[in-house]
Simulated assay, not measured.
Amino acid sequence: METVATRLKLARENAGLNLSEAAKKLNLSPSAVHQWESGTTAPRKKALEAAAKIYNVSPVWLNHGENPSFGAPIVPWEHPSELTDDFVFVARCDIRVSAGNGIVVYDECEQDEPQSFRLSWLKKMGMNPDNVRVVYAHGNSMAPGINEGDSLTIDTSRRDVKSSHVYVIRIEDEVSVKRLFKRPGGGLEVQSDNKDHPTRQFTAEESQNIEIIGEVMHKQSTRI
């Protein structure tokens, strides 16, 4: 059943924000935003209106589920004829990207079961459909923002590291999703959002062996 909590989570994800980014814009802690989305606490009127403004949705829809003012970027479909011209297909890659200690790549992208996206949303996010792929998270090292089974929309053209952004990376035969930070001298810091997982630091020379597959632009959660 749809609730204020589930609508808050959906609106945040459609805005392309993770918990930390949304919390920063709302002047809250990530745990406070997570409590809203889990239904543990409920935002007051002013906080709800602030969230609606940041997520670019109607506060009436957030509160009551009426008059939605946005379209979800990822849309379920059974046959292409159900989709309008505002939709494009993106390759769904059957790679489970580790949000843990890293997993071995074992499959390629499946072209016969693509994901449908709103073209208008991709343009708003500055993404070319040809560079977009969907992969799946495995593990809990990026929790609570990214969890087991979440689908991640990545832009494979965005490979220049911007500190604190989240990327899908390959180190040798292991592919994982991590938050990256630039280090003085050209090195990289590879960080997990889950503090139970250690941060790894690489020199400029070692960083040459890290392949940036793409930046994570959106997350679709399988959890309620």
Rank of each mutant, 00 (worst) to 15 (best):
M1Y: 11
M1C: 07
M1V: 13
E2S: 15
V4Y: 03
R7H: 03
L8Q: 04
K9L: 12
E13P: 02
A15W: 08
G16H: 04
L19T: 12
K24L: 09
L26F: 03
L26V: 03
S29G: 07
P30A: 04
S31H: 07
A32D: 00
H34P: 00
Q35L: 08
Q35T: 10
E37W: 08
E37N: 10
S38D: 09
T40A: 11
A47G: 06
E49Y: 08
A51N: 05
I54E: 05
I54G: 04
Y55I: 05
N56W: 04
P59L: 10
V60W: 00
V60R: 12
W61V: 08
H64N: 06
G65Y: 13
E66N: 14
F70H: 15
F70M: 15
P73R: 02
V88H: 03
F89G: 04
F89S: 05
R96K: 15
V97W: 01
G100L: 01
G100P: 00
G100C: 02
V105R: 06
V105L: 07
C109W: 02
P114E: 13
L119S: 10
L119R: 13
K123P: 01
P129A: 06
R133A: 08
V134L: 01
V135R: 08
A137Q: 00
N140W: 02
G145P: 01
I146G: 02
E148T: 11
D150G: 06
L152C: 07
T153A: 05
T153L: 10
S157V: 05
S157I: 05
V161T: 06
V161A: 05
K162T: 11
S163R: 11
S164L: 03
H165Y: 15
R170F: 03
S176K: 05
V177R: 02
K178R: 15
L180H: 08
L180M: 13
F181P: 00
P184D: 05
G185A: 08
G185T: 09
D193F: 09
K195L: 13
D196W: 06
H197E: 03
T199D: 07
Q201S: 14
Q201F: 12
F202K: 07
N209M: 05
N209V: 01
I210K: 14
I210W: 12
I210G: 14
E211T: 11
I212E: 06
G214H: 07
V216L: 14
K219S: 10
Q220W: 05
R223M: 07
